[in-house]
Design a protein around this nucleic acid. Structure first.
Lengths: 337, 337
DNA sequence: CTGTTAGCGCCTTCAG
DNA sequence: CTGAAGGCGCTAACAG
């Protein structure tokens, strides 16, 4: 495997000149520059990442801590990972994947061994033991998700309170005089992910504003039986509530359970899901949804992270950035009155 | 950040002794050993990954090339990634994630810059341009998936031919006199992933063995309309065929479309899906399935990879390893006659 | 504009 | 059983 010294020899220059040609950190005459580039091509030279990291103190790697394991959001994770990887590559960085089961130790390892220049931390709990550790690391950290106390770390997330409000506003506008949240799965509630509360708070506040009823059915196992029972309980209050399902997994089963009872969403009753647009379009019928956009959130997170890495760019002023979701009317809400 | 020299100074030994204590590559007296370990703890020393890689020529990193992008298997990927990450950690390695859109250049980068010691390559096409490149790299490569020509590289995959046979055997045993494959989505066929053909070949051969009819409906968009039309065409042949859906995404919609037509799977007709057990249990009703086990495949792939990395272990004899799937009877196949 | 030089932090042979 | 020393390949002062 060729080294920069080999390149230097072939090009008839000093090794440091090769380095400078590659980094562009000082001006090089067109001729030598060309000789070096030719030699690089001829030898198919590529710089050794370890050596470069050692000398420059920068790895060009972003550590990504993903919430795999039992409580993983079994599918919703991929768009995050994909977007983060592609944003990283766009800035000439790679992504080192670490699973959350290492806990805070994983963070310490990433930073302590200089495996990466920056860390993206996902699956944030309301009271996450990793946050205080993350705050002391020698590398910038961005959280995807918002803990109760972010300890001075930057966070990005969907504005779940707004999401709740959007859903309830829509249902109130359609004439429903009460709304029911067919809630999050047990595991999410147990892990005390903050967005559950944020969503519910936003929804409840909106309901109050509109002077309509508000209740929650949770937890809901995302299967047929769980959905049936949840629907049962949702309908108990009498009348025809507007239903909100803030749980991708449960949207399908809930739709099903309604149809089973002879209630056709979009004709007899309204249902709004909290899920990506792609997921919303895949159900039958397509569900009116408030969209989470993992790609937008990830992109913004990476923007902030790279701003943090550039010493000359100012730190983003806001510590917590909430990406506004949007509501898209599809086939499961009543026609406008 | 503490270095091994700091540790050496605190412990009152030479720097190389620190190194030997950590690697265990030569015997150290219990006392010095303890002094060193204490110093390490006191300084919370962690070795610098770049320096170690530079000196030892080993990065302790596995490169993972995933088929993100338009044609990604939108959810089925996660279990692979998760298992690969956890197997890597079990061998004290990390995972560097690279997306397939870099193509062969990504492989060259991974190996050429010494970013990793080994590569796992996923999303293998029947005639994949990356294979010949991968075969020339300076690091071991394992393919998850089987190309037409593996160029001497090791591969692991599900035994799709056996999967097809299992499904058809079961349907024949239940008395169906013809089977219909409601096939793979267009994108998979276009990319010419090998397993489509392998599955169909296995299924067709089994049908012939049993002397029953065999036909394929494809491509099938994994949505309601696509499923409806596919079911329509599947039923055209007359009688009640046994249906096989070798496409996780399509199982739900196809079930739906059948029910819409008044055909209850498990009572009026048989349907077998090709999907993970988890996915099979999540449908309504739970679908009899031939299971793909991404975790088993990934685990085996990592076993082989680490065998390839240990110079003393012999290379696995077989270049291509096919993991046998298994059929689990659930609620969408007719009771045994 | 270019070359020389001193490390970056660790591994590993060689001496003792 | 331990130390000293050279080098892994590159970056970034420091000299011209």
């Amino acid at each position: 495997m060729a080294t920069s010294r080999d390149v230097a020899r072939v090009a008839g220059v000093s090794q440091s000149t090769v380095s400078y040609v590659m980094s562009g950190r000082r001006s090089i005459s067109p001729e030598t520059r060309k000789r070096v580039l030719d030699a690089i091509e001829q030898l198919t030279y590529q710089p050794n990442a370890g050596a470069r990291a050692l000398a420059s103190q920068r790895t060009q790697v972003v550590g990504l801590v993903v919430p795999f394991g039992p409580a993983a959001d079994t599918a919703g994770l991929l768009p995050f990972i994909e977007t983060i990887a592609s944003c990283a590559r766009a800035e000439d960085h790679d992504v080192l994947l670490v699973t959350a089961d290492e806990g805070a130790a994983g963070l310490i390892r990433l930073a302590g061994r200089a495996l990466c220049d920056a860390i993206v931390l996902m699956g944030i709990g309301a009271d996450d033991a990793r946050i205080p550790v993350a705050a002391t690391l020698s590398v910038p950290v961005i959280l995807i998700g918002v803990p109760d106390d972010s300890a001075g770390l930057h966070c990005v997330d969907v504005d779940f309170a707004l999401a709740g409000a959007l859903a309830v506003d829509e249902l109130a506008g359609l004439g429903h005089d009460r709304v029911v949240l067919i809630g999050h799965p047990a595991e999410v509630i147990e892990r005390d992910i903050n967005f559950v509360r944020r969503f519910q708070r936003g929804a409840a506040a909106a309901a109050e504003r509109h002077g309509i009823g508000y209740s929650v059915v949770a937890p809901v196992p995302p299967d047929t039986a769980g959905a049936r029972e949840a629907v049962e309980r949702a309908l108990e209050g009498g009348g025809l509530p507007g239903i909100v399902v803030p749980n991708s997994q449960a949207v399908g089963p809930v739709l099903h359970a309604l149809v089973e009872r002879g209630l056709v969403p979009g004709r007899d009753i309204s249902l709004i899901g909290l899920c990506t647009d792609a997921a919303a379009e895949a159900t039958t019928p397509a569900v009116t949804n408030v969209s989470l956009e993992p790609r937008d959130v990830s992109r913004r997170a990476m923007e902030i992270l790279f701003r943090l890495l550039d010493r000359d760019g100012d730190d983003p002023a806001q510590l917590v950035e909430l990406i506004p979701p949007r509501l898209t009317r599809r086939d499961t809400t009543l026609p406008a009155p």
